[in-house]
Design a protein around this nucleic acid. Structure first.
Lengths: 198, 198
DNA sequence: CGACAAATGGACCGTCGGTCCAGTAACGTC
DNA sequence: GACGTTACTGGACCGACGGTCCATTTGTCG
C-alpha cells in the first residue's frame, strides 16, 4: 500500500522475514532492548540488509505499524457501519476508539517502539516534525467525526487528547495487564459527556 | 525536599551547577541531543561527577522535574483555593489542570526528556515499572478530586487519560507553538462534560 | 547465457550511557 | 593550624548501539 513496489524476490522474502522477526521480538522484550543487530540476527540476515530496506530503526517500526493499521484503515473507509460510513458520528467514534484500543492492546510494544513521532535530526531547528502517516490518519478521522456533531468544539485538539492516551506509559502498562475494557469504558464516558446521544 | 541531605559545599555547588546547565540546554536543544557529556561540559565538571551525583541520565531528569514540581505541590497541599483545599472538586481540578499545563509549557522538553517512565533494566520480566514520584502525585491528586464528585466513574483510569495528554508529542509541539490555552480550553470542556457545575 | 542493477552482510565508525579509580579537597578533631 | 578520614572529582576507559560502506553475490530480463 505504501511501498509494495516491485521488489526482487529475495528482497521481498527478506523484507517479510525482518518484519516477522521484529514483531516476534516485540512480544518478548521491551522495545528499547531490541537492537537492530538482534532483529537482523533473528531474521537470519545481515544488519546492512535491514538498513538497506528500512533506512533506520524508525523506518522499520513505522513499516510494521502501517502493516498493522491497514485493516483498520480499510474498515473505516470502505467497511460496514458502525466503523464504516453510515452510522451517526458518535457511534462511529465510539466504535473507532474501541477498535484502536484493541489494536494497540494486541500490539503492546509497538507504539512505544515508535517513541518520538519523528527521528531527531541533527538540525537544531526543524520545529514542525511531521507525525507518521498512521497517526495523521487516525487524528484526521477522529477530529472529522467530532466536528460533524459539535462544530463548537476544538475538534483538532480534542482528537490529539484522545490519541494521547495511547502514548502514555502507565496506560500501556494497564493495557498489558488486560485492563483494556477499563480504558474503553473511560473513553466512552468522555465521549458521552461531549456528544450527547441524539 | 527529596534529597537535600547534607552535602559537602563543593558537591552542593556542583549539584546546582549541573541542574542549571541541564535546564539551560533543555531550552536550546531537543532532549535526545543532550548527552551527559554535554551536560557535564556545560556545567564545567567532569562526567563522573554528574553520574556520582545523579546516578543516571534518568536520575538527573527526575531530580530536575521534582525541583520544578515543588511549587505546584506546595500550592495544592497548603496553598489557597482554588488550587488548595476549600474550593469544590470541579474548580480545584480545573485549576490544577491549568497549572500543570502552564508548568509543562514553560518546561517544554522536560517531560519528553523523562521519556519512558522508568529506565529499562536488563531483566526481561520487571513488569510493574513504577512511575516517578511527580507523576504519582499528580495522578493521585486528580483521581482524588474526580472521585469526590463522581464515585461512579473510573477515577483512576480517567486521571491517567487526562495526564496522558502531557506525554503526547503532537501536543507538546502544540504547546511549544503557544497553543497552551487551546489545550486548557479542551481539557475544561472534557471535565465540564463529566463533572456538571453544581 | 550474459550483463547490469539490485540486494547482501559484515567489518567498521562515531557516539553515548555508564564505570572505575587515582588524585584531591572539604570537614571534624585535637 | 596540622592531620586523618571521608567524600568528591574528572577523565580515561568500556561495551553496546545506530548507522555507513563497499566488495561480493544473486535475481532479472533481453
Amino acid at each position: 500500500m505504501t511501498e509494495p513496489e516491485r521488489l526482487r524476490a529475495d528482497a521481498m522474502r527478506n523484507r517479510t522475514a525482518i518484519l516477522r522477526a521484529t514483531e516476534e521480538l516485540l512480544t518478548r522484550y521491551h522495545p528499547q532492548q531490541i537492537s537492530m543487530e538482534k532483529v537482523a540476527a533473528a531474521a537470519g540476515v545481515g544488519k546492512g540488509t535491514v538498513f538497506h530496506r528500512f533506512g533506520s530503526r524508525h523506518g522499520l517500526m513505522r513499516a510494521l505499524m502501517q502493516e498493522r493499521a491497514q485493516d483498520l484503515e480499510i474498515a473505516i473507509t470502505t467497511g460496514p457501519p458502525p466503523l464504516g460510513q453510515g452510522a451517526p458520528p458518535r457511534a462511529r467514534l465510539l466504535a473507532f476508539l474501541t477498535a484502536v484500543v484493541e489494536m494497540v492492546a494486541r500490539n503492546k510494544g509497538l507504539l512505544a517502539a515508535l517513541g518520538p513521532a519523528a527521528p531527531v535530526t541533527a538540525v537544531p531547528e526543524q520545529e514542525p516534525r511531521e507525525a507518521h502517516p498512521v497517526y495523521r490518519s487516525w487524528h484526521g478521522h477522529i477530529s472529522h467525526l467530532i466536528h460533524q456533531q459539535r462544530q463548537d468544539l476544538d475538534a483538532d485538539m480534542l482528537a490529539h487528547v484522545l490519541l494521547a492516551t495511547l502514548h502514555s506509559e502507565p496506560i500501556l502498562n494497564a493495557l498489558e495487564r488486560g485492563d483494556g475494557d477499563r480504558l474503553i469504558h473511560t473513553l466512552h464516558d468522555l465521549v458521552a459527556g461531549l456528544m450527547p446521544d441524539p
